[in-house]
């Protein structure tokens, strides 16, 4: 029983030590070199596109319960992703950046909310509809494809971007060239996401080879560990991962779907939806959209133009 006493002392000492440890201030930056995996270290730090969002002072949306809720609260709660480089990312400092995040900030500013007053919530793909329906978030911006099935539960503004489903593989992979070469390969994606449903429904690989995790970053980790052979989701997301680790990962580049990204809104708040659509359209025409794109997603080397809005 003396053992327990020794253990207690050791634990208290370690607790005290960890409490006393002081951290360096500033941005953690990985030092490159000397690693067995050979990846050139990329910066983890978030940088914004440089577009500033000033809150609109006279924002008003007649007959919208969602807007009323935001106005009374004086803040807005937005569902985002945190692990998709250049789209929705949170760095080691807790700063958020990316195309989706800036679109979210832009919309918030047009609702009269200071981007500093945004409360971000990280919602996994499978829980998006429930989070919007339950009012846990006011709106969702995070690679959210507009589908008819989802329209039963939520409303969409946009699309504000069009992507396509693609494959992320290891750099030395040569046998996977597109969606038809996936048979017998382990394919990973996020639980409840459109891409994994497509793989299942079209039988692109055997059911036993489908691997599901809550987030794409978990899949990427499994890909690098050779536990899966491909990660599938929208090219916009995959390009971000490939840009973070260009020595080990590549995107196949044969998109096999059209994913229209919309802003997920509470269902049946048409006034709010129309207002958000108007704001997106304004961003398309006045160049804000392009500036945001070039400063975030565009950094991984591809160009894009604003898509066609689909109002309904």
């Amino acid at each position: 029983m003396r053992y327990q006493r020794v253990a207690a002392v050791a634990m208290m000492a370690s607790l005290a030590l960890s409490a006393a440890a002081c951290g360096k201030e500033g941005n953690p930056t990985p030092s490159g070199g000397g690693n067995a995996s050979g990846g050139a270290a990329q910066s983890d730090n978030c940088t914004s596109s440089g577009v500033t969002f000033t809150p609109k002072t006279d924002a008003a949306v007649a007959g919208s319960p969602t807007f009323e809720k935001i106005k009374t609260a004086g803040k807005v709660t937005i569902g985002v992703k945190f692990d998709q480089p250049n789209l929705g990312y949170k760095d080691a400092q807790g700063k958020r950046c990316g195309f989706d995040v800036e679109i979210a900030q832009y919309v918030a500013s047009k609702l009269g909310v200071d981007p500093a007053k945004i409360e971000y919530k990280e919602i996994a793909s499978a829980n998006r509809e429930t989070a919007i329906k339950g009012g846990e978030i006011d709106y969702y911006v995070g690679t959210y494809s507009i589908t008819d099935k989802r329209k039963n539960d939520v409303s969409f503004a946009g699309p504000y971007f069009v992507a396509g489903q693609d494959l992320l593989v290891r750099k030395d992979e040569s046998s996977i060239t597109g969606k038809d070469s996936l048979k017998g390969k382990k394919v990973c994606s996020a639980t409840g996401s459109t891409p994994i449903q497509r793989v299942r429904d079209e039988g692109l690989t055997e059911a036993s080879n489908i691997v599901e995790f809550k987030t794409y970053s978990e899949c990427v980790s499994q890909l690098l560990d050779k536990k899966v052979d491909a990660v599938t989701t929208d090219d916009a997301i995959l390009k971000g991962y490939a840009a973070q680790n260009p020595d080990e990962l590549k995107v196949v580049g044969q998109p096999f779907s059209t994913e229209k990204y919309g802003i997920g809104l509470p269902k049946d708040d048409k006034a709010f939806r129309d207002y958000v659509n108007d704001q997106i359209e304004a961003a398309f025409t006045d160049g804000t959209w392009q500036k945001i794109y070039d400063g975030t997603l565009g950094k991984s080397g591809s160009s894009a133009t604003p898509p066609q809005l689909e109002r309904y």
């Binding site: 440890a21 360096k24 941005n27 030092s31 690693n35 067995a36 995996s37 400092q93």
Partner: peptide
């Protein structure tokens, strides 16, 4: 052998922001 001791993997934890996380 698999490089778990390399500095790059541990550096984050020296920073206050990660400790705060």
């Amino acid at each position: 052998e698999t490089g778990q001791f390399e500095a790059r993997k541990w550096e984050q934890f020296q920073y206050a922001s990660v400790q705060r996380e």
